[in-house]
């Protein structure tokens, strides 16, 4: 369809090099390069700098990585906590969000996705503020404990500052990120197909297993991927609701950058986490064949 350029018009080098699409994407490309790629490059470079220095791009050493992989270093424990919390958050969220999404789909039909966006409103309030709110609720002599005591029940049990409370906080914080994709996924299941399955003799459980779940799977998997990545990076829940009883990997990175002033070590840790999450995500995405799930191929 492309017409040959009229010979009379001189073509500049720039015009020859960039297609219209490339030119249009230039502002975004620049923004991404500066705001997204550059920090990654800086972190990557810092991870090879001399420990406890700011000699980025001027020194090269594997000492930071050696420190992290040293058997005496207990950073792997933080890493394990983070992964464990992330997996548990994803599993709990899938179980919690699916029935909500299903209900939204049944009640609101086409408007279900828009309705699930309402669950995003709490995000307008800073996460820290919301988590401190929960602290007031759960703290000794707080809302929960105080109410129990007022009702002459046995109060005084301290539920705050435990791994369970951290998990609660994470499930609470990341619910919208699981709910929205699942609602979208369920909205993609045509009502006719469910009716047809029922008409062909299938009961509720069979319909769920054979029809709804596979057809909603793209949305479910995207929600799982999203919340997993967020869960690995979560730090506020462990700090505020966990009261630092557990140190997660993001907290370790934060400590390295702030308190210890050891940017190269923090960078090395960040690189390891990024590589791990990236590899897992790519593996997940490669398993997630959207076309096949949607039956387009």
């Amino acid at each position: 369809m492309s017409e040959p350029a009229p010979a009379a018009l001189p073509v500049t080098a720039g015009e020859r090099a960039l297609s219209l699409g490339a030119k249009c994407s230039l502002p975004v490309a620049v923004l991404l390069a500066l705001g997204f790629a550059a920090p990654l490059v800086a972190i990557f470079a810092f991870s090879f700098a001399t420990p406890r220095s700011f000699d980025v791009f001027r020194s090269f050493t594997l000492a930071n990585y050696a420190t992290l992989f040293d058997p005496s270093n207990t950073v792997w424990l933080s890493f394990a906590w983070s992964i464990g919390f992330a997996f548990a958050t994803v599993a709990l969220l899938a179980v919690v969000a699916y029935p909500i999404a299903f209900g939204l789909d049944r009640v609101f039909g086409r408007a279900a996705s828009a309705m699930s966006l309402l669950f995003v409103f709490p995000l307008f309030v800073s996460e820290n503020v919301r988590l401190y709110g929960w602290t007031l609720f759960f703290i000794k002599n707080g809302v929960l404990d105080g109410t129990a005591k007022a009702l002459a029940l046995a109060g005084g049990t301290d539920v705050l500052y435990s791994p369970g409370m951290i998990l609660f906080g994470m499930v609470y914080t990341y619910l919208p990120f699981m709910l929205f994709p699942i609602t979208l996924g369920l909205a993609m299941v045509p009502r006719d197909i469910v009716d047809a399955a029922r008409d062909l003799g299938a009961g509720r459980l069979t319909i769920w297993r054979e029809i709804e779940l596979p057809l909603a799977m793209p949305g479910i998997l995207i929600g799982m991927l999203l919340t997993f990545v967020l869960g690995i990076g979560a730090v506020a829940e462990a700090k505020i609701l966990g009261g630092q009883s557990v140190i997660v990997i993001s907290h370790d990175i934060e400590i390295a950058f702030t308190y210890s002033q050891n940017w190269p070590l923090g960078s090395a840790l960040a690189v390891i986490v990024s590589v791990f999450v990236g590899a897992l995500t790519l593996w997940g995405l490669s398993r997630l064949d959207l076309d096949r799930l949607l039956g387009r191929r």
Partner: peptide, 17 residues
């Protein structure tokens, strides 16, 4: 699902997966 009747839908409602 308990009726001995079956409907061929206008959309056909085939299972795409």
């Amino acid at each position: 699902n308990r009726r001995p009747t079956c409907l061929v839908f206008q959309s056909l409602a085939l299972f795409p997966h």
